[in-house]
Amino acid sequence: MTKRILIVDDEADICQVVQASLEEFGGWQTFLAHSGAEGLTVAQAKRPDAILLDVSMPVMDGFQMFEHLRENPDLQDIPVILLTSKVLARDRKRFADLSIAGVITKPFNPLTIWQQVASLLSW
């Protein structure tokens, strides 16, 4: 069974680079969303095996989307990996307090991000 991953990032170029790596090298099926609200809609419709979630997005940021996922019984068990350029000590503490699968920092290597995802999810 092919793994299915939802990529949520407001930057289209980041989505495309991650999508290419996950599909080409990981062999996974991907879905894209460019906002937190769109991400919730796609997650509900597609029920992905994992979500790569950008932290910094307008309107609904990654933390808010994560809270909505955890409040929804149908989506609360989907593993979430945060994509972020935020690596300050206070951000690390906030990440540690969340039940996330892991954090991938930007900038990332497009040729190896699929390996980071596989490692964090034990795939």
Results as ranks from 00 to 15, higher is better:
residue 44 Q to W: 08
residue 7 I to D: 01
residue 86 K to I: 05
residue 116 Q to S: 14
residue 42 V to C: 03
residue 69 L to F: 01
residue 87 V to P: 03
residue 64 Q to T: 15
residue 40 L to A: 02
residue 40 L to D: 01
residue 11 E to N: 14
residue 76 Q to F: 10
residue 111 L to G: 07
residue 26 G to C: 04
residue 122 S to K: 10
residue 8 V to M: 07
residue 117 V to G: 09
residue 40 L to Y: 05
residue 29 Q to A: 12
residue 14 I to D: 06
residue 38 E to T: 01
residue 23 E to Y: 02
residue 63 F to P: 00
residue 76 Q to Y: 08
residue 49 D to N: 11
residue 104 I to P: 06
residue 86 K to V: 11
residue 58 P to C: 04
residue 10 D to T: 06
residue 109 N to Q: 13
residue 97 D to I: 05
residue 89 A to C: 03
residue 93 K to F: 10
residue 5 I to N: 01
residue 95 F to R: 05
residue 15 C to Q: 09
residue 120 L to F: 10
residue 24 E to C: 10
residue 90 R to C: 08
residue 86 K to A: 15
residue 20 A to Q: 08
residue 71 E to R: 13
residue 94 R to C: 03
residue 12 A to W: 06
residue 31 F to V: 00
residue 53 L to Y: 10
residue 45 A to H: 09
residue 89 A to G: 05
residue 25 F to K: 15
residue 103 V to F: 12
residue 18 V to W: 06
residue 110 P to H: 05
residue 7 I to Q: 00
residue 19 Q to G: 04
residue 109 N to V: 13
residue 50 A to S: 10
residue 82 L to H: 10
residue 97 D to K: 14
residue 118 A to L: 04
residue 18 V to P: 03
residue 74 D to Y: 08
residue 60 M to A: 15
residue 87 V to C: 12
residue 52 L to K: 06
residue 86 K to G: 05
residue 97 D to E: 15
residue 58 P to E: 12
residue 4 R to G: 09
residue 49 D to Q: 03
residue 31 F to W: 03
residue 9 D to I: 09
residue 47 R to D: 11
residue 100 I to C: 09
residue 73 P to F: 11
residue 80 V to E: 03
residue 3 K to T: 07
residue 50 A to T: 06
residue 87 V to H: 13
residue 100 I to N: 10
residue 26 G to Y: 01
residue 47 R to C: 12
residue 8 V to T: 07
residue 21 S to Q: 10
residue 113 I to V: 15
residue 122 S to F: 07
residue 41 T to R: 12
residue 6 L to P: 00
residue 80 V to H: 01
residue 20 A to M: 10
residue 97 D to W: 07
residue 123 W to S: 06
residue 100 I to L: 11
residue 7 I to A: 00
residue 45 A to K: 10
residue 122 S to L: 08
residue 24 E to M: 12
residue 39 G to A: 02
residue 85 S to L: 12
residue 85 S to T: 15
residue 62 G to H: 02
residue 38 E to C: 02
residue 79 P to S: 04
residue 111 L to H: 11
residue 2 T to H: 05
residue 121 L to H: 07
residue 102 G to L: 06
residue 115 Q to D: 11
residue 13 D to L: 14
residue 60 M to F: 13
residue 70 R to I: 11
residue 62 G to E: 03
residue 66 F to K: 04
residue 27 G to R: 02
residue 29 Q to M: 06
residue 118 A to M: 08
residue 48 P to A: 07
residue 45 A to P: 04
residue 91 D to N: 02
residue 52 L to A: 11
residue 78 I to T: 00
residue 87 V to N: 09
residue 103 V to R: 03
residue 118 A to K: 12
residue 15 C to S: 05
residue 121 L to A: 08
residue 61 D to M: 06
residue 29 Q to C: 04
residue 113 I to D: 00
residue 110 P to V: 01
residue 64 Q to A: 15
residue 23 E to V: 15
residue 116 Q to A: 14
residue 15 C to W: 05
residue 102 G to T: 12
residue 24 E to R: 13
residue 38 E to M: 07
residue 64 Q to C: 13
residue 87 V to D: 14
residue 76 Q to K: 13
residue 113 I to R: 01
residue 94 R to Q: 15
